[in-house]
């Protein structure tokens, strides 16, 4: 009997904590978050012509429409390209490639990406930075390095008939320095950068 009583007490305590930690706590956080930071709490959505076109925190594909018979889409030269993604920038399938550091398939993929990116941007393959040819951890990384952004400026300017200086100034206004001056890495947000390009028309 004592063992039953003990387990019943345990269950009652668990239900008490379920109400406090599982319902009251998240509801309270949501209430405060929605009141104080509604934009951020709802996913930092970005708009174009009044319509939500994504989140500044979630990367997107910037590819040409698939041609007949084509299975892998080609990148659109008019846009800055994000990092490779293991999940095709699908937020319902976040994650990484999880391939080992000496995996022959991964090495081959990286070499192919280096050649393809260099040809696409018209630069020396040696100069393509690492973030351009490696898949991110989340598969949703919205950011690229300053080096990869700089590499893409001329290609985007040509494709859009803009001056490289104009494109470069958009890049620099979407460049983020290290947080608090020394945390993490500097980066360029591809989503907001391409949004700025889209707003030019």
């Amino acid at each position: 009997m004592r063992i039953v009583r003990n387990h019943l007490a345990a269950l009652r305590m668990l239900l008490v904590f379920t109400v406090i930690c599982g319902l009251a706590y998240p509801l309270l956080v949501t209430g405060v978050a929605q009141a104080a930071f509604p934009g951020k709490a709802n996913g930092s959505q970005v708009k174009l012509d009044g319509k939500t076109v994504g989140s500044s925190l979630i990367g997107q594909n910037f590819n040409l429409p698939l041609k007949k018979g084509q299975t892998t889409p080609s990148p659109d030269p008019k846009w800055f390209q994000p990092r490779p993604s293991a999940g095709g920038y699908d937020p319902t399938a976040s994650g990484a490639s999880n391939l080992g550091p000496n995996d022959p398939g991964l090495v081959k993929t990286i070499k192919e990406r280096r050649a393809a990116v260099a040809a696409f941007d018209g630069v020396n393959p040696k100069d393509v930075p690492a973030d351009a040819i490696t898949a991110s951890g989340s598969g949703l990384d919205p950011d690229i390095s300053k080096a990869y952004a700089a590499e893409q400026v001329n290609r985007v300017a040509n494709a859009r008939d803009l001056s490289p200086a104009k494109v470069r100034s958009l890049v620099s206004s979407n460049t983020h320095t290290r947080a608090v001056g020394f945390l993490g890495e500097p980066y360029v947000n591809v989503v907001t950068l391409n949004l700025a390009l889209a707003k030019l028309g």
Binding site: S97, L99, H176, E185
Partner: peptide, 9 residues
């Protein structure tokens, strides 16, 4: 660079 599986930021 060891950026496979790592985030840029």
């Amino acid at each position: 660079g060891m950026l496979e599986g790592k985030e840029q930021r």
